[in-house]
Design a protein around this nucleic acid. Structure first.
Lengths: 215, 215
DNA sequence: GCAACTATTGGACGGTCGTCAAGATTTTAT
DNA sequence: ATAAAATCTTGACGACCGTCCAATAGTTGC
């Protein structure tokens, strides 16, 4: 009897928790959009609320404070953006195909998700000043690194080569290229997409110059 | 007579302008230090004034508004940081020496000037949101690119090779590595300096794999 | 259908921001 | 030496910030 009552209570409690979490996520995503549009420095709670369907007061019902909200937003970014190339890796059967489709995806997300990407770089850089973001940022960076490494490792495998550089270096190199292209994209300078399509295959080639036999 | 009076006036005017500019520069450097410490989002005029020997009101005597002051600060950064490796390039007589001294300098500035570097990345990223910084940022980025290219081109020359990638790519790659190491530096994760000393020579090698005869 | 609880509103608060201007102080020209 | 011009300080201003809270609306369990 007591047990039945408890499980009922539990069911109710769980449903409430689920609903609570769902709204938290909803508000965190609204936060993400605000950050992508305005950047960290100009993102305010009232702006965030305006992007959702609620008033600004509700944010303190679901989040302890602004930091809590922003942290949750960062985690939402993670859920969105760390598996982008996995399909490409899974489906490629030749090195040329992987190279081409990776490059295409790279350029496509540069074009389509530019505001989201500038948000990521903004938050990552913010973590250099504000310790409270650092843990989540490092975890996402790690996931991004793994994502890139899956591409490079598979590409090397298909080429019957070995990567010439470490996992961290591979990520840094491609991240640097992406950031550069993103700046060009916003500045309207040159044609970053075209430049990437030309340069990325060469870079991939360089990153797997090692021969398996030679280690 | 009129001419003499005018040149005298001019001399006075010029001296005043010089003094005015000197103080502008002084305040812009104070701004730079504040930005390096607090980041763009938390840098306020009163904080900046506190880092100088003046009160906050004086900032509007020398600068039209906050944006004007920050823009001048960005230009001061440029004067500081776009010729860092030139001595290394000028004095190196062998590829091994250039590689070693470039790597040492790279790691040294990562360690010694970390706050200044995080400021640069903060401002560069800010230019993705705020158009008013973009022009100056792009110019500095261009100068950094040239600085890096002088290193790579000279290294290739000493190795009797040709660079395997474009100027922009070379810069992006090394910038990505630096940014990664900077994050590691602030997060206290691993030993970014050690990792760089290990990886940088390999990367340089990869960047100049082209042969002059075949290139 | 009614009480208990959850969810949401919107305004008020103390604080800080950029900006400005009036006045004090220092420097300069003669 | 002194008047004029420059430099600098101080305090105030309206705006906006994050936070909080009393009141209201909506939902749920029984």
């Amino acid at each position: 009897m007591t047990e039945v009552a408890e499980t009922k209570q539990d069911r109710i409690a769980r449903r409430q928790v689920d609903k609570f979490d769902a709204r938290r996520t909803e508000l965190a995503i609204a936060t993400l959009h605000t950050l992508a549009e305005l950047g960290y420095a100009r993102t305010t709670l009232r702006e965030i609320a305006q992007k959702s369907e609620f008033s600004h007061g509700v944010l303190h019902y679901y989040f302890a404070d602004k930091r809590d909200l922003l942290t949750e937003a960062v985690r939402q970014y993670e859920a969105l953006c760390v598996t982008r190339y996995d399909d490409v890796v899974a489906q490629a059967v030749t090195a040329e195909q992987l190279c081409r489709e990776f490059t295409d995806m790279f350029v496509a997300t540069l074009r389509d998700d530019a505001p989201l990407h500038r948000l990521w770089y903004d938050l990552r850089n913010q973590s250099l000043f504000d310790e409270s973001f650092r843990k989540d940022v490092l975890e996402i960076d790690e996931r991004r690194e793994e994502m890139i490494w899956r591409v490079i490792a598979r590409y090397a495998e298909l080429r019957n080569r070995e990567p010439a550089i470490s996992r961290a270096t591979a990520y840094s190199v491609l991240d640097g290229l992406f950031q550069r292209a993103l700046l060009g994209e916003f500045a309207g300078a040159g044609e970053p997409a075209r430049a990437l399509k030309r340069e990325l295959p060469r870079v991939l080639e360089l990153l797997v110059t090692g021969r398996p036999e030679l280690g």
